[in-house]
Structures are given as structure tokens and as C-alpha cells.
Amino acid sequence: MLKFKKFVLLLAITLLSMHHVMAEEMPTFTTGLAQTVNPGLYACSGANARISAVGKIKAKDGTEWIVPANTHFESAVKAADLYNQCNEIRLRRSADIDFKSVPVIDAGGSNIFTAYIFADNYFELYVNGKLLAVDPVPFTPFNSSVIRFKATRPFTLALMGVDWEENLGLGSEQNRGYAYHPGDAGLVAVIKDESGQTVAVTDKTWRAQTFYIAPLNDRSCLKVRGPVRDSSACSMESVQDGSSFSAAHWRVPASWFSPDFDDSDWPHATVFTNDTVGVNNKPAYMNFRNVFDDPIVDADFIWSSNLILDNLVLMRKVVE
């Protein structure tokens, strides 16, 4: 009888734990446009510059959400520029980089590494749980960055990727003749050691989880199965009025960037081609193809499974 009671108790605890996990995976939904709380994190007079505004929106359950993401842009170190129209930096090739002008940030270790990053639109880079630098241009014009740091292998890379938005809370922008066009995303990174040897690239071995999906014109299209947050069945059509559409939000784990964080149940990153992301006309990428598209170790653009609707994606990789 005692053994039976212990079995029942263990079963109850297991079921409660499973219920708790499933509950944590379910999203909170908001509807309509967010309230603007910052009219622009950054001002740029360059061509194709867009305002990187930030909004706040409340769900029916009382939870509040910062959109498109709660970032460290205003307080963190900005990554050094490879190509940045806003700062009048337009390097034509990687051989033109003045590495002496790029500070080396201590991430706990003795070896120097260099990270090359192009993000559509915004990134934040952590190494071993330390925030090293953030993208100096949150929205557009498109730019690329270089970051140097000290670490010892193995070390943990963690990247926040944000697809910025003009229609705050609805994951869309004015583009291609539409007022509500759901823009695409993507991120590519290459890590080299001091000898120039590539030690890591973005590819399908990374883990990637989405935390903000919009716009949703029909919430039932979103399928959540444990850690899988699948928006592939949702409409990606551009419209003239999407102000009544919805968005799905998940809380970002407080220690998601820590080496101790368990990302084993996160989906693997989905890879995308240069053509899909649309970088063939962007000098911020094309000027450095010898780095990003090295014929021996070619880096992939990565994101979650939906490049269009998934707007806040966290990515992780341990470099052995």
C-alpha cells in the first residue's frame, strides 16, 4: 500500500510538472497596434532609413509586452562597423578592416576571436553569458558589424535577432505598396580565431526559438506543440489594413544567454539562402562575401522556421 501511495504521488507530481511546462509554452495574444513609448531609438539620415520606434501593448490577461523586443540598445556597447551608411563607414572588403581600432572585449579567456555579423534587422551578441555588443542600427539602412573578444574554448554564443517593425505590435511595415507588409528577417555570423581560422558559423546545428509572432489575421493558424511554435500555416499576405490583426508573445527566459541554460528542447535553426533573405543588392553583405560565403566554411542565414512572421528569435551555440 505504501509503495502504491508513493507511485500515485510521483505520478501526480509528474503530471503537474508536465502541465506546468505545457502552460509555459502557450502564448499570450494581443490585438491591434501598440502604444508608442519611444518614437525612435536611433536617427539616421542615410538612404532607406527607417525609424526604430518601440511600443508597449497589454493583453486581456493583463500582461504587458514591449514590441518588437525589449533590447539593450540604449545602454550597451555598439558593435564596430564593417559597413554602416549612418556612420559613413563603407568598407569595400574585409582586407580594409583596421583591427587595431576594434576593441577586444573580455568574455573570460585568453584567446582572441573575431565575430562578423549581418542581421536583418537587429542583433545582440552574448559570449559566456556576457553581453558584448549590440547592432548599431536597429532597423535600416542595412549594416554589418565586427566584434573582437577574448575567450577560451569551449564558449557559448547567444544571439538575439529582431525583425523590426513600423506597425508596432503587428510585425509589419509600409512596403511594396502596402501599409501592412510583413517583412522578412535573417541573421548570419562567422567567428574566426586569431590566426584567421573559422571556428564557428551560423548553420542548422544552432538552436533557435521564437518569442514574438505577428501579424496573425487568424490565431487558430498558430500551432504550438511543446517547444515547437509553428506559424507556417498562417497568412503572410500584405494588406492595406491589418490594424485588427493579432500577435503571439512568449516570455523570454531570464538566463537564456547563460552557458548553464538548457536549450536542448529548442528547435534547431532553419537555414535560408542568400536569395531568400535578399542580400544580393546589399553592400553591407556583398562586400564581405569572402567571409560570409567562404567556399570552404560557408555560413548560412539562420532564423526560426518562419522568416516572415517570427519577429523575435533567440539563437544559441556552444563552440567546442
Rank of each mutant, 00 (worst) to 15 (best):
K5C: 13
K6A: 12
F7A: 15
V8L: 13
V8Q: 13
V8Y: 09
L9M: 15
L9C: 14
L9H: 12
L9N: 12
L9W: 10
L10Y: 14
A12V: 15
A12S: 14
A12H: 12
I13Q: 12
I13S: 11
I13G: 09
I13N: 11
L15T: 04
L15P: 04
L15K: 04
L16Y: 10
L16T: 09
L16W: 08
L16E: 10
M18A: 14
M18H: 14
M18V: 15
H20T: 14
H20C: 12
V21E: 12
M22L: 11
M22E: 06
A23N: 09
M26Q: 06
P27S: 07
P27K: 02
T28N: 00
T28G: 01
F29N: 02
F29Y: 07
F29C: 02
F29A: 02
F29I: 02
T30V: 07
T30C: 07
T30H: 03
T31V: 08
T31D: 04
T31R: 02
T31C: 02
G32D: 09
G32H: 07
G32T: 08
G32M: 10
L33D: 09
L33Y: 10
L33F: 07
A34C: 03
A34T: 01
A34S: 04
A34F: 02
Q35P: 15
Q35C: 10
Q35L: 15
Q35R: 15
T36H: 11
V37Q: 10
N38D: 11
N38V: 13
N38S: 12
P39M: 11
G40A: 12
L41G: 03
L41H: 05
L41Q: 05
L41K: 05
Y42E: 11
A43I: 13
A43T: 15
A43R: 13
A43V: 15
C44Y: 03
S45M: 14
G46L: 09
G46E: 09
A47G: 15
A47K: 14
A47N: 14
N48F: 14
N48M: 13
A49P: 03
A49R: 04
A49W: 04
A49I: 06
R50K: 14
R50S: 14
I51D: 08
I51A: 07
S52K: 05
S52G: 12
S52N: 12
S52Q: 07
A53S: 06
A53E: 06
A53T: 08
A53L: 08
G55R: 08
G55M: 12
G55P: 10
I57V: 12
K58V: 05
K58S: 09
K58M: 06
A59Y: 06
K60S: 08
D61G: 03
G62M: 03
T63P: 00
T63I: 01
T63L: 01
T63C: 00
E64P: 05
E64Q: 07
E64L: 04
W65D: 00
W65Q: 00
W65S: 00
I66F: 00
I66K: 01
I66H: 00
V67G: 01
P68L: 01
A69R: 01
T71D: 04
T71N: 04
T71E: 04
H72G: 11
F73T: 02
F73V: 03
F73P: 03
F73L: 06
E74L: 03
E74T: 05
